[in-house]
Write a protein that binds this DNA or RNA. Structure first.
Lengths: 296, 296
DNA sequence: GTCAAGATGAAATATATATTCTAAAAATAT
DNA sequence: ATATTTTTAGAATATATATTTCATCTTGAC
């Protein structure tokens, strides 16, 4: 039970991202072991076991001293706890908790990288796998990074607009059509500012202060979109931005979303963007419908 | 800009859990400030800005030395970065990232629990999760249902075509724009038959026997697409079909893909379709490039 | 091209943090 | 009840980590 593992983990100072591509089996194993050994634990060690099972992210993010204070045990108790489960000390155990926390958000990205490295072959099947993993990674990332409050706020901006204009350029045109299509389907007036058959500047004349303008802009963003966005703000319209790299002037929007799409061989996935577009459209449509039913 | 904040945060050694239930305004504020100041940052500091916006959890979980190695800057650069934004040093800035990570990981857990308990509430967060899970399910399904041979065959049909025409209607227009965009980007001649400014029938005159026509059709498929598809076959063009319900006349195509998109509340995901479009485009582009390099 | 102002990385230093040790307190067995 | 073993907390120590310093390099203005 007390077999100490005095491996000083010489390569342990690598970034955790490097390790997390092998799945975090160690974390799950540790959880199980903690649960299994629970009855054999001393009083203080049980307190730690309870806490670490209940709030693993706190274990990952805090110092032994802080945790000790929170749990009500001495820091050395945490070291004893770690040693009981075969670690050289608290730090080594904490690394497992940290890996897990990071793995949950970026494991798919790592898998893509692993696939890229292992199968340098231009094999079609592997390429397919990589793109699908990239898509899933993007969606998982979206799940973690957006908050319901953000969505709610943006959806209300859309629902309350006279017209929702959607700024689209080459790269993001696809997502824009999807947003426009779904909004229209849900009876939210939508208009695509695509710069086709003329300049964006000309199309902007239809934008009024009662409108909402959604700009979807990926790096490198075309100057035209930036100009049109600023124009919309000058007019007094509400603004929503969906971007992969939040920076001026887009951060001055009334609502903005930063999404990070995974990319493979320089081709960026669009999965997170269109999923966000769908979610926003549906929520806006729901709010719109509720408003109309209240005031017929 | 450089106003240092030498508050030694005497109460800063409290557990983060105590703080994280009040919203992490500080993290959002920091994000915005990083984005706003971006243009005024030096080269190394920009690298750090990019990284920290893109992968905040890595900043929360790693040491300055590890992060420096990953980003490609010296640890002292991270300290300078933190000081630029008014912190006393890297540690103080990292605390903001850690708080945020802890807050978001607990809220995510709560979301999952809410999802498990009630499947009926119209809560926004729950809706978001359902759509994201549906998207992932679609991608997983795609991964299992398509074979490399199918992709290879279809990509060759596209690469060998004089022009690739893409049949689009309302429902599938988004996926069609994506396929067209990516094909064009890879120097595969692509043309969108969108039925805009007239009828599809009129646009079909550009289709020749050396062309390939891709029809993307979801149930219920518009009669127009079916007609245009049959017209393409009459002309003698190669045909590729992407559909959710394989049936006549589409099963007579030279190559067809059946994909099943998961749907939530009647809203179908588009993730599998656009991912397939991207994969096909890239493979076609690769084949095209190989052919051109062999016969200059 | 030359110079100044700013940016940068390596090493030295300071600090925070984990770990070990020990004496005392609980728990358990006799 | 007493002896023995285990558990514990606090202090002492070791280690990891952040921070500062400074010489060197870069950049931009003239």
């Amino acid at each position: 039970m007390y077999e100490l593992k005095h491996t000083k983990r010489k390569d342990g100072d690598k970034m955790q991202t490097k390790h997390s591509n092998r799945d975090d089996k160690s974390f799950e194993a540790l959880r199980e072991q903690i649960a299994a050994d629970y009855d054999g634990l001393s009083k203080r060690l049980r307190l730690i076991a309870d806490f670490s099972l209940q709030d693993p992210s706190a274990v990952a993010l805090n110092t032994a001293a802080n945790l000790g204070e929170e749990i009500g045990v001495a820091p050395s108790a945490l070291v004893r706890f770690a040693k009981h489960f075969g670690f050289s000390g608290f730090s080594e155990m904490q690394a497992v908790f940290r890996e897990h926390l990071q793995a949950s958000s970026t494991s798919y990205k790592e898998r893509i990288r692993a696939l890229e490295e292992s199968g340098a072959t231009r094999d079609t099947g592997e390429m397919t796998d990589r793109f699908i993993e990239a898509g899933i990674a993007s969606l998982r990332d979206l799940q973690h990074s957006i908050s319901p409050e953000h969505i709610e706020a943006a959806a209300e901006l859309m629902a309350n607009a006279r017209i929702v204009h959607i700024l689209a350029q080459k790269r993001t045109f696809t997502a824009a059509t999807y947003l426009a299509y779904n909004l229209s389907r849900l009876d939210v007036p939508a208009n695509l500012l695509d710069g086709l058959g003329g300049t964006l500047e000309q199309q902007m004349v239809t934008v009024s202060p009662e409108d909402t303008v959604v700009a979807i802009s990926f790096n490198p963003s075309a100057g035209e979109t930036v100009e049109a966005f600023e124009r919309a703000r000058d007019i007094g319209a509400r603004t929503i931005v969906i971007t992969d790299l939040a920076r001026a002037p887009f951060i001055h929007a009334d609502s903005w979303f930063q999404i990070s799409e995974a990319s493979v061989d320089g081709f960026r996935s669009l999965n997170a963007t269109i999923s966000l577009a769908l979610i926003l459209a549906i929520r806006a449509g729901t709010i719109c419908a509720e408003m109309n039913s209240e005031t017929p």
